[in-house]
Simulated scan of single mutants.
Amino acid sequence: MTAPRNELQRIMRALEASGLSVEAVEDGALVRDGDSRVALFADADHRGGVIVRLHLDLDLYVEEDALPDILMGMNLLNQGLDYGTLNLDPVDDEDLGEDAPLTFAVLGRAVLWLRDLGAEELERLREHLRRFEAEVTEAVERTLHGGKGLSA
């Protein structure tokens, strides 16, 4: 059940007022802060409130043969994350031949429930968004540029 468009627009206005660049995309919004881009989607909760889903595309791709090592590394990284998780999504690339290895995109994801769209809850969303992006990006960069971790 999707939140009424005016709720998403209220969220977008609040994020813009806090200094973030926000633009509407299909059924959600794209929030930009510097080089980072987080997709934001809002759904009405049948118990009241709004469920906000955040997706951070990390521009990392993994081929099927590297999955065992990657999954172990992601599991370890996820244990240290407070504001989101790393997930793998299959990349649907019709341009590749049938014999091409299956490829997965590494994404950061988070979900936050807001009891309403009052100032306090919108501030909590801004803080969650900021910490989610920073925490996931830092964990991945530290792992990729450190001596051990993910190898794709």
Rank of each mutant, 00 (worst) to 15 (best):
D116N: 14
A42M: 04
R130Y: 05
E94R: 07
I11K: 02
R53E: 13
L117F: 09
D82M: 05
E123K: 08
V106S: 00
F104Y: 15
A134F: 13
E138N: 10
D82S: 14
R37W: 02
T137S: 15
V140M: 14
D27T: 15
R115N: 12
A42Q: 01
L77C: 14
Y83Q: 07
A39H: 12
T137R: 11
E135K: 07
I51M: 13
D89M: 14
A110S: 15
L122T: 01
Q9G: 05
G19K: 03
R109A: 07
D116K: 05
A139H: 09
S21C: 04
E133G: 03
E23S: 13
A42S: 08
D43Y: 15
G80P: 01
A119W: 00
E120M: 12
H46R: 14
L81I: 06
E23C: 10
A105K: 08
G108T: 03
L58M: 12
G34R: 01
L86A: 10
D43A: 13
L40W: 01
L129D: 05
D45R: 11
L20I: 00
T103Q: 12
E135Y: 05
E127N: 08
N78R: 07
L102S: 05
L20Q: 10
L77T: 11
D65M: 13
A66V: 07
D99L: 15
D27F: 09
A66Q: 09
D59G: 04
D99P: 06
G49W: 11
D59S: 12
A139Q: 11
L77W: 08
D33P: 00
L67Q: 03
W113C: 13
E138K: 09
N75V: 05
M72N: 12
Q9F: 07
A14K: 04
L125N: 06
H46I: 10
A66D: 15
L81Y: 04
V136G: 08
E141W: 11
D33H: 11
